[in-house]
Nucleic acid binder design. Structure first.
Lengths: 186, 186
DNA sequence: CCTGCAGTTTGACGCAGATCAAATCAGAGG
DNA sequence: CCTCTGATTTGATCTGCGTCAAACTGCAGG
C-alpha cells in the first residue's frame, strides 16, 4: 500500500472485493500499465491484482513519485494523464455495463484487447486470451455461459475463429459496427 | 477544456456520450465535488456536465493547479487523493452495474446520496432528489419504469416515503442489508 | 497411458427487468 | 383557474440472459 505498480511484462487482472466476499474483475492489465491508483486516497487497495501468467511488476513508492513530480513537470503531467486516462476508461466501462447488450459488450471487449495488443506491437487480429470465460464474464457483467455462447455465435457468423483460448478476429469491421449500433437498452 | 471545475454550490450530473448519440449519466455532483478529471489525458472532455439546479462552478486551469502543486506538496497530495477517490468510486459503480440487481442498485444509490448529504451537513434521511427517474435509471443501468416500480416497492415495504421528488428514508438498516446481501447474479 | 479436474460448450427452462401502453400528476405559463 | 407538457406511476406482455444440468475437452500428475 502507498505504492503504485507498473506492469513490466506479463498479464494481470484486478478484482474489486465486496464486503460479502463476492468479487468482480475490474480490469485486465498488460505490459506498460500502471496499477493501484485506486489506493492513493484511501490508504487501502480496493483491488487485488492477480497474475494470469508470469509477470514482472515494478513497485513505485508514492512518496518518491510525488517528490520527483515536483522536480520534473513533464513527469507530473504524465502521471496526471495516466490517472485521467484511467478515469476516462472507467467511464467507458460504465457505459458498457450500463447500456450494452451481451454481444456489444463482448465485441467492445475484444476490440479493446485488439487495440492494446496492436499498441504494443503484437498482432491486432490474432492473440491468446489469458483469462477464463468466467473472468471475462465477471468483467463484462455476464455469466460464463453467456460469454461462451456469444463467442460461439460470433464464430458461426464468421466474425472470429476461436479455438479454446486462442482467438483470431476475421471481420473486425463487423465487430466495430456491433459496438457502434446500440440496437437496444437504456 | 484543460480546466477542472469545482462545484461550489448546486447540483449537477455528468453524461458520457456515445459516438452514436446515446448518452449515459456517469455521476451526480454536489457542493465540493471536482469535475472534469477525465479530460486531462485526452484534451477533450468525455462528459457533458449539466446543472440540475442553479449551480455555482469554479474554473481551475490545469496549468495553474500543476504549478501550485509543485510548490505546495500538501496540495499535490490532496489532488492525487481526489483523483484516486474518483477511480475508487468508479470501481464501486462498476461493481454495482456488473453484479447487482435492481433493488440493490437503487438501495446503494440512495445510501450513497444519503452519506453525501450527511457529509455536507444536510439531513441524511430526508432530502430532495434533483434528478428525474430517467436520470437515476441511466446512472444505474435501469429503465425509468424499473426505478419507479422499485421506489414504489420500497415504499410499500415501509423502507421509505416518497412523494414525487421528496424522499424520506425510514429504515436505513434495511437498505444497507439489501446492498450487503447480494442475493444473486454474477 | 490413465485419471481427475478445471474449464468450456450446449441445451432446456425460468425470471428480472425491458418494452409497450395508458392513465395520472405536478408545475409553468397564460 | 385552466391548459399544456413533461414526469411519474402502474399494468400487461415479451425477451435476453441467468440458472440448472449434463456432456465434452485438454492438460497436469501419477
Amino acid at each position: 500500500m502507498h505504492s503504485l505498480y507498473a506492469l513490466r511484462s506479463g498479464f494481470m487482472k484486478s478484482c474489486v472485493l465486496h464486503e460479502d466476499g463476492r468479487e468482480q474483475v475490474a480490469g485486465f492489465h498488460m505490459m506498460g500499465d500502471l496499477m493501484g491508483m485506486d489506493a492513493i486516497g484511501s490508504n487501502q487497495h480496493l483491488c487485488d491484482s492477480i497474475a494470469l501468467e508470469d509477470s514482472d511488476v515494478c513497485d513505485i513508492p508514492l512518496t518518491d513519485l510525488e517528490t520527483l513530480s515536483r522536480e520534473i513537470p513533464s513527469l507530473q503531467q504524465h502521471f496526471h494523464r495516466i490517472m485521467s486516462r484511467e478515469i476516462a476508461h472507467d467511464y467507458g466501462v460504465m457505459l458498457l455495463l450500463g447500456s450494452m447488450r451481451a454481444e456489444e459488450r463482448l465485441a467492445a471487449f475484444l476490440l479493446n484487447l485488439s487495440q492494446r495488443f496492436a499498441a504494443r506491437g503484437y498482432s491486432s487480429t490474432e492473440f491468446h486470451l489469458r483469462m477464463t470465460r468466467e473472468e471475462i464474464g465477471s468483467y463484462l457483467g455476464l455469466k460464463l455461459e453467456t460469454v461462451s455462447r456469444t463467442l460461439s455465435h460470433f464464430q458461426t457468423e464468421g466474425l472470429l475463429a476461436v479455438q479454446n483460448k486462442h482467438l483470431r478476429i476475421l471481420k473486425i469491421e463487423a465487430l466495430q459496427e456491433l459496438v457502434g449500433q446500440h440496437s437496444c437498452r437504456s
